[in-house]
Design a protein around this nucleic acid. Structure first.
Lengths: 244, 244
DNA sequence: ATGCTTATTTGTCGGACCAGAACTGGTAAA
DNA sequence: TTTACCAGTTCTGGTCCGACAAATAAGCAT
């Protein structure tokens, strides 16, 4: 799934010796951003100007720019040039959406346990900060599950429901982590579900969660939410037994 | 994002579904990897062969390759060619170590709250799964804090202590998330600390946590761990007041 | 203001050369 | 003969150059 354990950390060539010409330019551009104090939204010099400044060919500069773009540090539009951005989170997001990672039983258990820790674990704080608008929006998101067309769309809505739920915490870090994990969570959500399952069971479970929230009933909220997270897991066990 | 004017999404007529030529090639290479069933370690065709196969110029193929490389999907060595890898995690890693993001008060609070949810929230399961070897290793990691040379190293050891702690859960997802967040957490840890602080206060707090673990005292463990995570936060408040 | 023109910039292409690893073949040594 | 070694050749990625197409911001004309 997500990846193997962390590999040996490679020492990032410090300041001195630089690898390829492209790496040098990447470093120089980053220095330029730092030295010039450029902030998000500011523009970078044109490609040709960078060529001149760093005495590199345009190809080299472009490949360097590709790296910065891949890292979500700059955004470049034809004619207008490159501007500084910070989409690192959404880049990390794309990192994990690459090859089709299969959802093993352990992956399923781990991810759901993680979500349980966050969503159920922070239940008290969620209710504490809960506003009526939150309840309304959660309900509105959930009803969208009824008019869903395909699995992909359904899991997206399912995910946005839980994202909206944790957003109540006002914790940007958690939102970022959820964004990074989104591709995996989507697969988890689709595991063993049909379009109909989303429209009936998932919808009902979500609605129960929303009701508990509206009533500010902490215990009921935790109970329903935990059960909701567990449902898929039960199916997983059955599937395992069936194939075993 | 900005005021309207995101170029109207070009309708992906049937097959192509692509933006720039480079994006197309990236897509095609990914498809090639999938279709061919290439695994980590396998080799990709040479650049010139990819040019021929996808009817793209070598520059385009190279820029596409830069993206795959930046995403940690391929590793390319001169004269040898490109081989499939999976360094996505360490890439995501580097994503966050790019520009030195300042640690705002809110960032600090959010990250620590997140860690609290995980580490304190899973305290019962940690103790449940705790083995004597875990206690020994945690202690051994902590004593390394005593012989530390600089802040960077100290925060690394501090981090590895907490990483080892959550590793007891046996939840790979949590380990992955911690790996991704490492750069941020390191900054958090260094916030308002000196080398001496690590050697004395942090060491003592960790040791208290280990003792509580060794005694299988859940409440004490949670209490000490939560306090430990809070210490830096208190300092942050003082600093805020001082500068206000 | 509105619409057209222009100039600039990115996107893509094809070709070229280099340095160095990988492959080849032959020769000398065992 | 077999093995080991060495030089030449081939192949590949890394870099550079020049050119054209496409897109669009900016200036110009109406």
């Amino acid at each position: 799934m997500m990846a193997g354990r962390t590999k040996a950390l490679r020492q990032p060539d410090a300041v001195p010796a630089a690898g390829s010409a492209v790496d040098v330019v990447v470093r120089q551009i980053r220095e330029l951003i730092a030295d010039e104090g450029l902030k998000v939204g500011d523009s970078l010099p044109t490609e040709r100007e960078l060529c001149a400044r760093f005495s590199a060919s345009r190809n080299t500069v472009r490949e360097a720019m590709r790296i910065l773009k891949a890292y979500g540090m700059v955004e470049v539009r034809p004619k207008v040039g490159a501007t500084i951005t910070d989409n690192r989170m959404s880049r990390a997001f794309e990192l994990f959406s690459f090859n089709t990672m299969e959802v093993s039983r352990k992956t399923f258990a781990d991810v759901q346990a993680f979500r349980d820790l966050i969503e159920v674990g922070a239940a008290d704080r969620i209710i504490e900060r809960l506003g009526d608008r939150d309840v309304g929006e959660l309900h509105r998101i959930n009803v969208r599950l009824s008019g869903i067309q395909d699995l992909q769309e359904a899991s997206e809505v399912d995910f946005s429901f839980h994202l909206r739920l944790v957003s109540i915490l006002g914790n940007d870090t958690i939102l970022d982590v959820y964004s990074v994990m989104k591709p995996i969570v989507l697969r988890i959500m689709q595991k063993g579900k049909t379009r109909r399952t989303f429209k009936t069971q998932t919808y009902a479970e979500h609605e129960g969660v929303v009701d508990a929230l509206a009533a500010r009933d902490l215990l009921s909220f935790q109970y329903r939410l935990r059960n909701h997270l567990m449902t898929g897991f039960k199916f997983f066990n059955e599937e395992m037994e069936a194939s075993a």
